[in-house]
Simulated scan of single mutants.
Amino acid sequence: MTIKRLLPLALLVLAGSAAAWGFSVVRKAEARQTGKREELAPKGGEYVDAGDARIFMQRSGSLDAPAVVFLHGTGSWSETWRASMETANKAGYQAIALDMPPFGYSIPPASGEYDKQKQAARLRTALDNAGIRRAVFVAHSFGAAPLMEALLSNPDEGRVQALVLVDAALGLEGPQADGSDSMLQSVLRWRWVGQPLAAGFLTKPEYTETLLKSFVSEKDKATPAWQQIYRQPLVLEDSYKHVAAWLPELLARRGHAASDFADAYGRISWPVTLLWGETDTITPLSQAEHLQRLVPGAKLVRIPRAGHIPQIEEPALFQDALASVLRDARP
Rank of each mutant, 00 (worst) to 15 (best):
A150N: 07
A245Y: 03
A15D: 05
R122V: 02
L71H: 12
I107H: 11
A110V: 13
G200C: 07
S78K: 08
D156R: 15
A121K: 15
G51N: 14
L184D: 02
A31T: 06
A262F: 04
W192I: 04
T34A: 14
E38Q: 15
A145R: 11
G171L: 00
P248L: 14
S214A: 11
R302G: 00
K116G: 02
H140L: 07
V136K: 11
E313Y: 10
A97G: 11
R254G: 11
V193H: 00
F142S: 01
P205M: 11
D128T: 14
Q58C: 02
L251C: 01
K43E: 15
V193W: 01
L7S: 12
A244K: 07
S217T: 01
S286L: 08
P271R: 05
Q176K: 13
L275Y: 02
R27M: 08
R37K: 12
W77I: 00
E113W: 06
I268Q: 05
E86L: 13
A120Y: 01
S60L: 11
V325Y: 03
A222M: 08
V235P: 00
I3R: 07
W192R: 00
H256E: 12
A139M: 00
T210V: 07
D52A: 12
A15C: 09
K299D: 07
L275I: 15
K4C: 02
R5C: 04
I268W: 02
K241Y: 07
R253Q: 15
E218M: 14
S106R: 14
G104I: 15
G22R: 09
G277V: 00
D115Y: 04
G297C: 09
T87H: 08
T34S: 11
A264D: 00
V243M: 03
K204G: 00
